[in-house]
Design a protein around this nucleic acid. Structure first.
Lengths: 140, 140
DNA sequence: AGTCATTGATACAATTAGTACAATTTAGTA
DNA sequence: TACTAAATTGTACTAATTGTATCAATGACT
């Protein structure tokens, strides 16, 4: 059987904390359809072993994803990509949270030296990717 | 096992500040190939201990090298010689890292139920805000 | 003395690792 | 089937390691 587990690529010198890299890559794989709702993620221990990091580091990444309702961790069972999309939030909170998200993203990108043009183009691309992934899924 | 750490030679009477000597010698070792991109430097405390110097002095040297992008210091993890991949790789990595950031942001936003239009508009707004903040700062 | 650069002391923050524990599932066995 | 024990899985709390920030002490030079 083919190895299904999408392997994560860590850069131990990148400046980004390991747990952040794990969060980013899992989220990225979800957007790109490599991971789908309902999928089970590797256990904290097995992923940690694969990545040669402490399992608490993975647990921390999972907890962040869990708090963001992106995954659902269940003690004694495992962790899974969340089935149900968004929780209801008020319009105000929605706007605020989006602004905050955008601000964080833009700030980080600019800090890394990307131009405004690059940033907006990359968002466009990502949106397109996501739309395609969604269409594919709906056709199934 | 042979001691791998290249020891620095300080001259406490040379008139050159300790931190400058540390900066110079690390730079020199990099040029001479004794240190290579990705290498981990001793921690501020261990190097300070070796050199019989306060660790803040080492930290100051490291900060200077960090600002010069020669090394990358990471709180809680350590200090490393900056990786300087060939330009084409750099560009590829740059794109990838931005794509990852964008994916994460877009994924999160869409998951929260925002429309594509809202997302791109919010990025536009945020870019504008950052640009204004930057202009103000430059006028100072 | 006054001032500035350098170095040191101390407290802090971020990241990762260690250890013990709780919830759930699985396997064994009567 | 029903019960129990072990294995598997995530959680909580703590410790260790690392760099950061701030301010005080020192020393050289005017």
């Amino acid at each position: 059987m083919a190895e299904k587990k999408p392997t994560l690529q860590l850069d131990f010198h990148s400046g980004l904390p390991i747990y952040t890299q794990i969060v980013n890559q899992i989220q990225s794989q979800l957007v790109n359809g490599i991971l789908k709702p309902g999928d089970q993620l590797p256990t904290v221990r097995s992923l940690a072993s694969d990545l040669r990091v402490n399992f608490n580091t993975v647990a921390r990444a999972y907890r962040i994803l869990d708090e963001a309702r992106i995954i659902s961790t269940q003690q004694g069972r495992g962790t899974f990509i969340t089935e149900i999309p968004p929780p209801e939030v008020t319009e105000k909170l929605r706007k605020e949270s989006l602004a905050e998200l955008a601000d964080r993203f833009v700030g980080e990108a600019l800090r890394l030296g990307f131009s405004e043009r690059e940033v907006s183009q990359m968002v466009k691309d990502s949106l397109k990717l996501w739309k395609e992934a969604k269409n594919v899924k709906e056709e199934e």
